[in-house]
């Protein structure tokens, strides 16, 4: 067994055992922060599926919000269990993503222009949620109708945080698995070629539109799933935390910080941004509202210039280079 694999297994065992380690009254808080890291890392990973191939979306909040709101509304108004409602929400979001992505692909809206289109789409979804206040609760947000018991499998509502800890751990692992599958597939090669030059990609026989729509659908589906999980855990949805520019940029910040070209980059970046905002919140309370965002913004600029493959990606690259250097020195 390789050292890397051993470390991964040890980490997994530690994560699985974590909820039962005594934490001197801090358990609820630690679990809460960890659950958030899992959920947002999963969403960041979903974003990076597109981002790493040059499809930079600044509107993933749209997918997140659609997923979270669709599942919540179906439960609140029709009593549809989130097990089914979540699937409906994911399907709906994929449909929406395709409606946005098809014309972009057809009319060759690429790069900065694609980012601008998605930015607008995210904002449109946020404004729609606010405008439809009769059933979405507008900018006040919406609370999930509580289940009758403290632990309801049908409603996916549990008072015990540990249930959501394991649920979000599994979903996070699912995200990593999908990332790895894609990374080893021909679709990755095709997407890399498309990201470099669409005309050249088409001229070697790659169905450009199909691959672009496919990756967009996958990314949107996973993002919507993250939104459903978020809604179930917080039992509250709000247009500002789940749709619009703010949340879309937050996803991008975290992924760029950690590194969008590597498996664990989004996770490392998300953990760092959440740790930073928690730290600032605990130290400064509400005195410096917007401080975290200011720091993210500065970091983002520095990272794009100096460490384009992120903290995790660069560290891994460095290690790998050192290893090959050592190998060539001993040889």
């Amino acid at each position: 067994m390789t050292p890397g694999r051993l470390a991964a297994l040890a980490l997994l065992a530690a994560l699985a055992a974590a909820p039962f380690v005594p934490m001197a009254g801090m358990r609820q808080y630690v679990l809460h922060v960890t659950i958030q890291i899992f959920i947002w890392s999963f969403i960041g990973g979903a974003w990076s599926l597109m981002g790493r191939f040059g499809l930079v979306s600044l509107g993933h909040g749209a997918f997140l919000g659609l997923g979270a709101y669709a599942a919540t509304l179906l439960w609140n108004f029709y009593g549809l269990t989130p097990w089914v409602g979540g699937l409906v929400a994911v399907a709906l979001t994929v449909g929406f993503a395709l409606v946005v992505a098809y014309p972009c692909s057809r009319f060759r809206i690429l790069g900065h222009y694609f980012a601008l289109v998605t930015l607008a789409v995210g904002e449109v979804v946020r404004l729609l949620i606010i405008a439809e206040r009769d059933w979405t609760g507008g900018s006040l947000g919406l609370t999930l109708r509580p289940a009758r018991t403290d632990a309801s499998l049908l409603a996916i509502q549990y008072a015990d945080k540990r249930v959501f800890y394991y649920a979000s751990l599994v979903v996070w692992l699912l995200g990593l698995w999908v990332w790895t599958l894609l990374d080893r597939s021909m679709a990755r090669a095709a997407m890399e070629a498309i990201g470099e030059d669409e005309t050249a990609a088409a001229s070697v026989g790659i169905h450009v539109t199909r691959f672009k729509l496919g990756i967009t659908a996958l990314s949107a589906a996973l993002t919507a799933l993250g939104g459903v999980l978020y809604a179930q855990y917080f039992t509250y949805v709000n247009p500002d935390t789940l749709a619009g520019i703010g949340v879309s940029l937050r996803i991008v910040f975290a992924v760029v910080l950690g590194g969008m070209y590597s498996l664990l980059g989004p996770t490392v970046g998300t953990a760092l941004t959440i740790a930073l905002s928690e730290y600032l919140r605990v130290i400064f309370g509400v005195k410096f509202i917007g401080m975290a965002e200011t720091i993210y913004g500065l970091l983002l600029v520095l990272f794009i210039i100096f460490l384009p493959s992120g903290i995790y990606g660069s560290a891994r690259g460095l290690l790998r280079r050192r290893r090959t250097l050592e190998a060539s020195a001993t040889a």
Binding site: A189, E192, A193, E196, D197, T199, A200, A202, S203, V204, G205, I206, H207, V208
Partner: peptide, 27 residues
């Protein structure tokens, strides 16, 4: 569409070469 034409046995070497610059020669 272009990808279908390639499958029929016509290969296009586009103007200005249009290789994939970030990929290796082998890739």
């Amino acid at each position: 569409p272009a990808h279908d034409i390639v499958a029929h046995g016509i290969a296009h070497v586009p103007e200005g070469r249009r290789i994939f610059p970030a990929l290796t020669v082998g890739d």
